[in-house]
Design a protein around this nucleic acid. Structure first.
Lengths: 146, 146
DNA sequence: GCGGGAGGTGGGAAAAAGTGGGAACAATTA
DNA sequence: TAATTGTTCCCACTTTTTCCCACCTCCCGC
């Protein structure tokens, strides 16, 4: 999958356009949408979702509360969604509300999956975390020479 | 890659001319553009980006907040861009806004990669950090004989 | 000083991507 | 059952992007 930040818009019918550049990377016309960590949605191509979810389920037991929590939080909300002829997907209302998506959205490509953010939440997230990011980068720089 | 500071301009179609001197150093006609640290964009030749990003992604999990932060801040914004026949690249709007690029830009050559700054931000950055630079130089001088 | 070439700039036109909304169909409620 | 609301599919329009070409200007050799 490609990386990149792309602006995209959600219309009144709750359809989100996947930018053409990212669309070409999704084999087939189906993606899995779920709640992400932080205020965003995660969007996986089916193969990647299979790997991720099976790993997650495989390494946890439903007899443990933490495992149940993780499963409810990440696995349960997952829905398969079809990409229409114009390259859009319909965002289910529970997920739309979770990520507080308005008209202005942002899609992030992260190699194995994508994230969908409301533009305002994403800017807020980046601003709040810029200091942490610089610290993390310093630390990383001390370990690895990049 | 060559070093040097070059003034260059961004036109109304968001195309940035890579000075001919630097262009010759980029094998092939593709570069990777991403958010840098501080107010600038980073511009890597594909091979260098591969090394850098793989080092970065290699040992991280999307279930950890620091890893997500670094991926969102450095990996997600990265886009492959082609150099056109006239030696220009198109700067994606999210990146252009991040670095506050206006017509007057500056490209810095830094051996392994390049940086793109708005001329005004760069001047401000240098002025603000001159004192810190002198300190850093003292410290380094104590360790290494240069 | 003049001609030629390389580097740099701008903009037109075709193609591609994105947007909105109508109509048909399904579902839900009174 | 009729009326209303919500979905889905499709089409037409608009905007953006891409590709290409023409021209400008500066520098160098003659």
């Amino acid at each position: 999958m490609i990386t990149g930040e792309f602006r995209c818009s959600l219309d009144e019918k709750a359809r989100l356009l996947i930018p053409a550049r990212m669309r070409t990377e999704v084999l087939g016309n189906v993606v899995i949408l779920t709640r992400g960590v932080e205020n965003c949605l995660w969007l996986f191509p089916p193969e990647e979702w299979k790997i991720f979810s099976e790993n997650l389920v495989g390494s946890t037991s439903l007899l443990q509360s933490q495992a149940r929590l993780i499963q409810r939080r990440l696995i349960a909300p997952a829905q398969e969604t079809e990409i229409d002829k114009a390259g859009r997907i319909v965002i289910p209302s529970t997920l739309r509300e979770y990520a507080e998506l308005k008209k202005e959205c942002l899609i992030l490509g992260l190699k194995k999956y994508m994230e969908v953010w409301s533009e305002t939440s994403y800017q807020a997230y980046l601003q709040e975390n810029e200091a942490k990011f610089k610290e993390a980068a310093e630390e990383l720089g001390a370990k690895v020479s990049l």
